[in-house]
C-alpha cells in the first residue's frame, strides 16, 4: 500500500494540521471541546491525513495507473452482453 515507510507517519502530521484546523474552525467559546472530543477529531483527521500523505507516495499512484488500464466492466464471457439483453 505504501512504498515509503514515512507515509503513515506523515499522515499523522497532516492529521494534526487538519484536526487543529477543524477544531479551531468549529469550536465555539461557550462550548469548549473536552480532551476526548478533541481526540475524536484528531483521530478522524488521520483518514484524510493519510490520504494526503499517500499523494506523495509512488505506490498508490502505481496502483491507480494499473487499475486504469483494466476495464472492470468488460463482459466476462463471450456472448454475455447479448444474453443479458
Amino acid at each position: 500500500m505504501f512504498e515509503y515507510r514515512r507515509t503513515p507517519y506523515l499522515g499523522l502530521v497532516y492529521a494534526g494540521v487538519i484536526g487543529f484546523a477543524v477544531t479551531q474552525l468549529i469550536e465555539t467559546p461557550d462550548r469548549p471541546l473536552t480532551l476526548v472530543q478533541t481526540m475524536i477529531f484528531y483521530v478522524l483527521s488521520y483518514l484524510p491525513g493519510l490520504g494526503l500523505a499517500m499523494l506523495g507516495d509512488p505506490a498508490p499512484h502505481r496502483a491507480k495507473a494499473e487499475y486504469l488500464k483494466v476495464d472492470f466492466y468488460a463482459p466476462k464471457e463471450p456472448g454475455e452482453e447479448a444474453a443479458c439483453r
Binding site: V22, L47, G51, M54, A59, P60, A63, K64
Partner: peptide, 22 residues
C-alpha cells in the same frame, strides 16, 4: 489503495463529526 479515496471519504467523516458537535 488509492490516495484520493482516503482524502474525500475520510474528509466526509470529519465533516460528519463536526455536525455531531454543532
Amino acid at each position: 489503495q488509492q490516495a484520493w479515496t482516503w482524502v474525500t471519504e475520510g474528509g466526509m467523516f470529519v465533516v460528519l463529526a463536526a455536525r455531531f458537535y454543532q
